[in-house]
Amino acid sequence: MKITLVATTALAGALALPAFAQTIGVSIPAATHGWAGALNYHAERTVERLEETYPDMDFVLTTTSDPGTQVSDLEDMVATRGIDALVVLPFESEPLTGPIQRIAESGTWVTVVDRGLAQDGIEDLYVAGDNMSFGQTAGQYFVDNLDSGAKLVVMRGIPSTVDNERVEGFEAALEGSDLEVLAMDHANWNRDNAFTLMQDYLSRFSEIDAVWAADDDQAVGALAAIEQAGRSGEMIVVGGAGMKEMVDRIRNGDETVPVNVTYPPSMISTAIEMTAVGASGAAPMTGEFIIASELITQDNAEDYYFEDSPY
């Protein structure tokens, strides 16, 4: 979060200079779940804002729902729009590493967002959330706040690197504690799947003290199942990514939902803005910007509540 602020400040300063006319391509996944939806929301808003402020600047925004289409989109951008810079959130690391590498080699500025490429040193700029820290922050909260011997269930997302890193961080935080993880299954970052999975967890275990839902969409499903079973109050649920409704519950001191962990979709705005500055050569912007996950509690919830965000 802090880095975002720094970058935005830098941009404000840098763009005061006359910018070169340039085209920036932005390629991100389609809005297939809440977090990606927010990502789209932030990307569109940033593009609109920059285009309005700097008429010389041109943006090409594409959204894709699979790696194959993303590769074609990138090829189209280079071939037909002659982009000078690319901001890309790779759908998957492996299949996109090659195509992005070729674009970088042709002299185009490349900013990779959130999901790292399979090979180091391709991109000019890397802006990402920290999935390890995302899991670790939640795990640490459980270790600090649950009674010893407390029993947990864990909902994982779609099997992927992101999910693996989060769970790795979570398990690392739990190591050495005497918290017991009863079960871990995939709910695919989907409300309905989470609802079903939670129903089955509740049938299976008579005692559950905490649920790490790992994602706020999953937390919504889990909460509905817990309420249906009449077991609200028996356990706490920690989601992640700072969905509006969840932050609202934390703000109001909900007992079941005491905290949340950030994974800001607004990182795309940061990336686009930094690219605009970096690619124009107005200010040095290369390197890595890792945005660590933070814990949202009742005390700081107000800072993370965005009224008009869709997420």
Partner: peptide, 11 residues
Amino acid sequence: ITWLADGGTLS
């Protein structure tokens, strides 16, 4: 539905 929900969730 994605458009109606503005990429997010309709509640």
